[in-house]
Nucleic acid binder design. Structure first.
Lengths: 155, 155
DNA sequence: TATTGTTATACTCTATAACTATA
DNA sequence: TATAGTTATAGAGTATAACAATA
C-alpha cells in the first residue's frame, strides 16, 4: 500500500472525533461568544501568534491580499471578515509603509484577549479523549505536538 | 486545573490539524466526487455502519425525525439531504412498519459504495501525520482508536 | 388535538463582477 | 495598464413557519 495504513486509520479517527456534533457546535458557539461568525473566528485564530496553546500560523501584520491567499478565499471575503474583527475592536487596518494601495491587518490587545477566550472554549476535549488514562493523554499530546510541528508553513 | 492540560493541548492540536485548509478542502472535494453537498456527505457517512475504517454511528434504518435529532438539525434539512441521497441512488425512504406517518431511511448498495469511495479520499492524512515515523503512527492510531471507542453512543 | 414529513419563505454565508484609488 | 481593496449582486445552504397526512 502506498499510504501507511496506520496513518490513514489514525486520521479517520481524528475525522470522526472532529465530526461529532459536539465539536462543530462548540466552534460556532465559541464564535458566537466573541461576536463573530465561524469564518471570522478562524481568521482571529490564524492572525495571532502560534503558542504552546496551539493555533496561529503567522504573527506579522500581513496585507489583506496575502490573507486571501493564505485562506484560499476571495479578497472580498477578507474585507467582510476584517470588517467584523474591526467592528468588535479585535483588529485594525493599517496603511502599508510604502504602497498606499495596500492595507495590513493587525490584532489589537482586545483581539488577543478574545482569541484566548475562544480558545478556552475550543480546547475542551471530547469525552473520547478525557476518558483516556492520564499517561495516554500525555502520549497523545506529544505525538500530536510533533505532528502539528511538521505541518508545512503557510505559503 | 479542572481539565487535564494534556488532554486540552492534544485536542487543540487536533483542531489545528483539522482546520488546515487542505483538510476542509478535501472534505468538500470528497463530497463533490460523489455528487453531494458537505452536509449530505456527513449524512452518508453517519448512515453506514461503523467499521475498522471508522465512520458510521448507527446501522439500522432510522426514522427521519430521529435523524434530525441525531444531527441536531431541523427535520426540513433531513428532507433536503435525503432528497439528495435518493437522487443519487444512495439511499431510499421506506414506510414504517406500523406508523404510516414515518419514513425510514436506508443505504442502498450504491450508497455503501459511494461511502467507501468518499472515505478513500477523506482518509488521506495531512503531512503532519505521515511525516511521523511508522512506530509513532501506529501508537497514534492505537490511542485514537481507544478514544473514538470511548465516544458516547448517539442518543 | 398532536405528530411526521414536506413545502414555502427568509436569512446567512460565500463567490463573481464591477468599481475606486493608487501604482 | 495593472494591482489592492471595496461595493453590488447573485447563488448555495440552512433555519423558521405554515401545511397535508396520519395517529
Amino acid at each position: 500500500m502506498s499510504q501507511p495504513a496506520a496513518a490513514r486509520e489514525a486520521w479517520l479517527h481524528i475525522v470522526q472525533l472532529f465530526t461529532s456534533d459536539e465539536t462543530s457546535r462548540n466552534f460556532v458557539a465559541a464564535a458566537g461568544d466573541v461576536g463573530l461568525t465561524a469564518a471570522a473566528l478562524r481568521a482571529l485564530l490564524a492572525l495571532g501568534p502560534g503558542v504552546r496553546g496551539v493555533p496561529g500560523r503567522h504573527s506579522e501584520a500581513k496585507p489583506m491580499r496575502a490573507l486571501a491567499q493564505d485562506w484560499h478565499c476571495d479578497p472580498s471575503m477578507v474585507t467582510g471578515i476584517v470588517d467584523q474583527l474591526e467592528q468588535q475592536g479585535y483588529a485594525e487596518r493599517r496603511p502599508h509603509a510604502t504602497d498606499r494601495r495596500v492595507k495590513t491587518v493587525s490584532l489589537t490587545p482586545a483581539g488577543s484577549a478574545a482569541r484566548a477566550r475562544a480558545m478556552t472554549v475550543l480546547s475542551v476535549p471530547p469525552p473520547g479523549i478525557t476518558s483516556l488514562p492520564a499517561t495516554e493523554q500525555r502520549e497523545l499530546r506529544d505525538l500530536l505536538r510533533k505532528a502539528t510541528a511538521a505541518l508545512p508553513p503557510l505559503r
